[in-house]
Design a protein around this nucleic acid. Structure first.
Lengths: 232, 232
DNA sequence: TTGTGAATGTAAGCATCGATTACACGGATT
DNA sequence: AATCCGTGTAATCGATGCTTACATTCACAA
């Protein structure tokens, strides 16, 4: 199939000193941890130009490696994206849980609010990374157990928090699943409006976004909270 | 620059009857309305495989035209996508307004609900087309006045509806902009959750989606509506 | 009617990308 | 020390967006 066969190795001679003098180490033949470096490069690309800006070749270029090398570590581009999504999801979850750890334990509804706020803030600060973990377009959920699991546990966490709030009589509605989905739709929608560039069309300046985020979250909380002086 | 010059036309001879017999008209040199046909082909591609499935060449292929032809009508792929988005947005707006035309005129809050429902239903029925008009990824807002304008007018329409509801004392909050953004975030979020394949992870089956959509919309309405027996 | 220019199609080609294949290197194991 | 296999390279393929040179035909004016 391949027409031209290559002459058998002039490489050893062509390659200069091997980690000898103080020169910036001309990279040994084997990279060390290319997989990790590729994921980092891809993460960086996502941060720079969004998920579409990730190309296997560019990641390879940044890793200082040939265009075919990445395919030793990832069967295809999607697999690389999966790894990137996994990393992003890990960071996302870590932040959410860190924030929640500092929330008041005695007021579940306030904790629920904290969850929403942490979600929104992370999405605002890391729009491109948020995008990658949100849209299945960029990776294969079935192929990426890590993302799905992290996600499921976050869903569980909010579900439990909501259940506690209900148990303490803080909610008007008893259809917790509905409430939870509404809450998720609200914060996810807001985050995506930001990512998708809707806010300029809504006359919301960048500086106002975080305040607006908090505002709509409070609107939700008020909407689902039981009015103190009123029994169902 | 170009090495090989072509012999000067054997085409006229090679081309068979020209719209003569009853044969299916071997397409004249000029297509007729290639621009329109390309948009339709692209719309179809969007419907089949989402926005990413659209390629200029495939659209050309389906139009039965050479790969370079589309560039006579669209300076680049983005411009084609813009046209597609414009068409989709037109249809979207038409449906919304048609639904609203049948809504009760005396109850603004009910009209607001109708708007939300129409939005959700269209998004559920045309997920890929909805995606294309939602995410600026696929087209350039500045380049596509039509989409932005249609969108702005829909935003205006909901804004006015909400203002009427407030004027009739149907709302708890007086911060209408906040309410409107919350409402939009909710329906947009729900629509995107559907597009982005979140619902399987939430245990929401396809058959339940529409009902759930209605449920969260009602939750919102209840949340923003003034409780009858309670004055602020 | 005829001639000419603009509009619009074709053919060929470039660069880039994802992906594959044959081969080269070199660390780890024996 | 010999060898095996994980990992990198080089070359190549097919598809895509886009450009350029050329071909064809329509519309309009003389």
């Amino acid at each position: 199939m391949r027409p031209s066969a290559k002459p058998p190795s002039t490489k050893a001679a062509a390659k200069p000193r091997r980690r000898a003098s103080a020169a910036p180490a001309p990279r040994p033949y084997h990279h060390g941890d290319l997989r990790r470096v590729l994921i980092d490069a891809a993460l960086q690309l996502v941060g720079e130009g969004g998920p579409d800006a990730v190309s296997v070749r560019e990641a390879a270029r940044r890793a200082g490696v040939s265009p075919g090398a990445p395919f030793r570590h990832f069967p295809n581009r999607a697999a690389l994206m999966n790894a990137v999504a996994e990393e992003a999801q890990r960071r996302f979850r870590a932040e959410i849980e860190a924030v929640l750890a500092e929330a008041p334990t005695s007021d579940p509804l306030a904790r629920f609010r904290c969850l929403g706020l942490a979600y929104l803030r992370w999405a605002m600060k890391n729009p491109t990374h948020f995008e990658i973990i949100s849209s299945r377009r960029f990776f294969d959920h079935d192929m990426t157990a890590g993302v799905s699991q992290d996600n499921a546990e976050l869903i569980d966490l909010t579900g439990r928090t909501l259940a506690e709030a209900f148990a303490q009589g803080q909610l008007r509605s008893s259809d917790l699943k509905q409430v939870q989905i509404a809450g998720r739709a609200l914060v996810y929608g807001f985050a995506r409006m930001n990512i998708d560039g809707h806010f300029p069309r809504w006359g919301v300046a960048d500086a106002e976004i975080e305040r607006t985020a908090e505002g709509i979250l409070d609107l939700l909380i008020e909407g689902i909270a039981k009015v103190p002086g009123k029994s169902p």
